[in-house]
Simulated scan of single mutants.
Amino acid sequence: GDFVEKCILSALKNDDPVYVVGVAFYAGRKRISDIARYLQRVAPWLTRKQAEDRVRWCVSHFSSAVFLSMKAEIKRVRENKP
């Protein structure tokens, strides 16, 4: 758990909207539609589909950023070991 948290925080700042959506989706177990409804309250000009598309993009970006951060951290640890 500590490794994953370290990688998440090294990939994204905790005030980044991608971080907020990713944590809500993965840790908070919120559905895309629930997060999208919240997003529509913050940005009422978005349609339901636009809000859901943005949430999906954030979840995808979150996953990719964390994956790349984990990959780099594993490589760094392997290179530092004899």
Results as ranks from 00 to 15, higher is better:
1 G>E: 07
2 D>T: 11
2 D>E: 14
2 D>W: 05
3 F>K: 11
4 V>Q: 10
4 V>D: 06
4 V>T: 11
5 E>T: 13
6 K>T: 04
6 K>Y: 02
7 C>D: 03
9 L>T: 04
10 S>T: 10
12 L>K: 05
12 L>M: 07
13 K>A: 15
13 K>C: 10
14 N>Y: 10
16 D>F: 01
17 P>R: 06
21 V>R: 15
21 V>E: 06
21 V>T: 15
22 G>F: 05
23 V>M: 13
23 V>R: 11
26 Y>H: 14
26 Y>A: 07
27 A>E: 15
27 A>F: 05
28 G>Q: 08
30 K>I: 03
30 K>L: 14
31 R>C: 03
33 S>I: 13
35 I>K: 02
35 I>M: 04
36 A>T: 10
38 Y>H: 10
41 R>C: 12
41 R>T: 15
41 R>I: 11
42 V>L: 14
44 P>S: 11
44 P>A: 07
44 P>M: 08
45 W>K: 13
45 W>S: 15
46 L>S: 03
48 R>K: 15
49 K>D: 14
49 K>N: 11
50 Q>Y: 02
50 Q>R: 08
50 Q>D: 13
50 Q>I: 05
50 Q>E: 15
51 A>S: 07
52 E>Q: 15
52 E>W: 03
52 E>F: 03
53 D>R: 12
53 D>S: 12
55 V>R: 04
56 R>E: 12
56 R>N: 11
57 W>H: 09
57 W>Q: 12
58 C>I: 03
59 V>W: 02
60 S>I: 03
61 H>G: 01
61 H>E: 13
62 F>M: 03
62 F>E: 04
63 S>R: 13
64 S>A: 08
64 S>H: 06
64 S>I: 02
64 S>K: 13
65 A>F: 00
65 A>Q: 12
66 V>F: 00
67 F>V: 01
67 F>A: 03
68 L>Q: 10
70 M>H: 00
70 M>W: 00
71 K>S: 05
74 I>R: 11
74 I>V: 11
75 K>R: 07
75 K>E: 09
76 R>H: 01
77 V>N: 03
77 V>S: 02
80 N>I: 00
81 K>D: 03
81 K>Y: 07
82 P>Q: 13
